[in-house]
Simulated scan of single mutants.
Amino acid sequence: MSDEVEGVQRGKVTTYDSFKGFGFIRRLKGKDVFFFYDDIADDDKSVNVGDYVEFQLKIVGKGPRAYDLKKLDKVT
């Protein structure tokens, strides 16, 4: 099964374990999205629970996954 790109979406980081290097984003609609530390595109590579982010959504074998995460100053 090939990865299916769903486009750019926004959400809020609900969990993030910096030691393990992964977390989840709550989207406005749809299932929560998994991400890895390596998927954070910002130069400082930091996200915190409660941060709003924009990301590329791909549907992979285990479900939705976020790539190319960028923190937002505010949700518009």
Rank of each mutant, 00 (worst) to 15 (best):
M1L: 14
E4C: 10
V5E: 14
E6K: 15
G7K: 06
V8Q: 13
V8P: 00
V8D: 11
Q9I: 05
R10K: 15
R10Q: 15
G11L: 08
G11H: 03
K12M: 08
V13C: 03
T14D: 02
T15Y: 12
T15L: 13
F19V: 15
K20W: 05
G21C: 10
G23H: 05
R26C: 04
L28I: 06
L28W: 10
L28M: 05
L28R: 11
K29L: 11
G30S: 04
G30M: 03
V33R: 02
F34D: 02
F35S: 02
F35N: 03
F36R: 13
D38E: 14
I40A: 05
I40M: 12
D42E: 14
D44N: 13
K45Q: 15
S46Q: 08
V47L: 13
V47M: 12
N48H: 14
V53F: 05
L57Y: 06
L57A: 09
K58E: 11
I59A: 06
I59S: 02
K62L: 12
G63F: 05
R65L: 01
A66H: 03
D68I: 04
K71P: 01
K71G: 00
V75I: 10
V75P: 08
T76W: 11
T76D: 09
T76Y: 14
T76P: 10
